[in-house]
Simulated scan of single mutants.
Amino acid sequence: MTTARMPMKSSSFQPSPNMMGRLRCATPTRRRSGRWYPEERRRGQGNHIGPLCLPLLQRPVKRSLELHMRVPQATAVLVSVDGTHHPDGRFPISCDDLGLSRGHGVFETLPVYDSHPSSLDAHLQRLEQSCVLMGIPAPMPAVLRTRIRGLLEASSCSHGVLRIQVTQEGRQILAVRPLGRRLDTLRARRLAWPTPPFPPARAKHTSRAGYTLAPAAHDVDEVIRTTPTGHALEGTWSSVFCFRGGTLYTCPDDGRILPGITRGHVLFLADQMTISVKEEAPGPPEPNDSWFLTSSLQGIVGIHRLDDTDQPPMPEPIRALRIALDQHTGRPTAPSA
């Protein structure tokens, strides 16, 4: 069944300031070939596009997105939906489920080493907190653990990636896929991107299209959100650290960022290794800074180019911290690809 698209009633559409990319269509729309087009696009004048979207539209979108998939997004080898396994990764879902139609859901992604999900307790605790923040029925921990164990036992991936997703309707979708390549260093760009009021930043929600498009739009591996004054908050898929003058800086868990699981491990290990830490959003880059990112799948990954400026190699304290983190999380010792 097709759904007719209705024209805008107003002759001037003004989105809220928080809309991703600040896309603005300033003229009425007309129907052409079954679609509604802005008058200015019909005349070939183009739309007014904000700084987030403009770079993406200046190059082929598909090629741009493929360029930045450095970690292969392999097809899930096994999926479980509410406890039922689907080996081909396909399963039915209602079009009324807001997790599908509106991205109203929460998720966790964590590595699996030797068929054991790393930091599972911490991820399940954050999943429950995300459900509360998003108004989603939280799954029963015992039932969810049983389903995770059954999925991993049925999977052929001893080293893989486990994704746990809960939709607004309460459906539990689990998926296991092969573990992708680990990065040693990457390119990043800082972008003024204040924390929006909704969805809550402390919830790991599934409304992440903007986070997916941003790195591709700016031709980097990661985009670091900053305040208007240039203080780093977090990445689109990572937590951000800056080692400056012998002190490790990172944004505090004050409601502006997602409290990363690996971020917590790094803070704990830094304290054990007597590395000075300040939970304070690092300001604009300075000479001799060492910036790095953390995530559950990547661990610690350095930044070799930030805002078109080459960065120094990772210093010895951070290299030692990276090794300690790998040991702490159970990552197998293997050379990076």
Rank of each mutant, 00 (worst) to 15 (best):
Q14D: 05
A337Q: 14
L248G: 13
R22G: 02
A201M: 15
L191E: 10
D271C: 14
G46C: 00
Q272N: 12
V132G: 04
G50T: 03
P178M: 07
E39N: 03
S130P: 12
R305I: 08
C95Q: 10
D271L: 10
T146A: 04
R126G: 10
A175V: 02
A122H: 11
A74P: 06
L325H: 08
R149N: 00
S238Y: 04
G21Y: 06
S239D: 13
G180P: 09
Q168V: 00
T27N: 04
H85A: 08
P315Y: 11
Q298R: 10
R41C: 01
G260D: 11
G34A: 03
L325Q: 11
L133R: 15
N47P: 00
H104M: 06
P215Q: 12
T229F: 00
V77N: 05
T146I: 00
L152I: 07
F268N: 14
R30C: 00
Q125R: 15
L162E: 05
Q73I: 03
I275L: 15
D221N: 09
L67R: 15
A192S: 10
M8P: 03
L127I: 09
I136S: 14
D253T: 08
R70C: 13
W36K: 01
P228W: 02
R256E: 04
Y211G: 03
G34K: 06
I303D: 05
T167E: 10
P111H: 04
P17N: 05
L233E: 10
I93P: 06
R59M: 12
P317Q: 06
R63T: 14
D254E: 15
V132I: 11
H68F: 05
T3M: 10
I93H: 09
L325V: 12
W193T: 12
P332W: 01
L152A: 03
I173K: 13
T294N: 13
H205F: 08
E222M: 14
T226H: 04
E66Y: 11
R5Q: 09
L248I: 12
S290A: 15
I164D: 01
A76W: 04
T227M: 08
L269I: 14
H48T: 00
R181T: 12
A26R: 00
P284G: 02
R24D: 00
Y211R: 06
Y37D: 00
D271E: 15
T247W: 02
F243Q: 03
D82F: 15
D88T: 05
L325K: 11
P17F: 04
R145W: 08
P7Y: 11
G135N: 03
E280I: 02
P178Q: 13
L297D: 07
R256N: 06
K9F: 14
R30Y: 02
V240Q: 11
V266L: 14
Q125T: 15
L233V: 15
M1V: 07
M19W: 01
G210T: 09
A192E: 09
V79I: 04
R202G: 13
Q272V: 10
L179W: 03
T262K: 03
I257A: 15
V266G: 13
T167N: 12
L248Y: 05
E222K: 12
P315M: 09
G105A: 09
S101D: 04
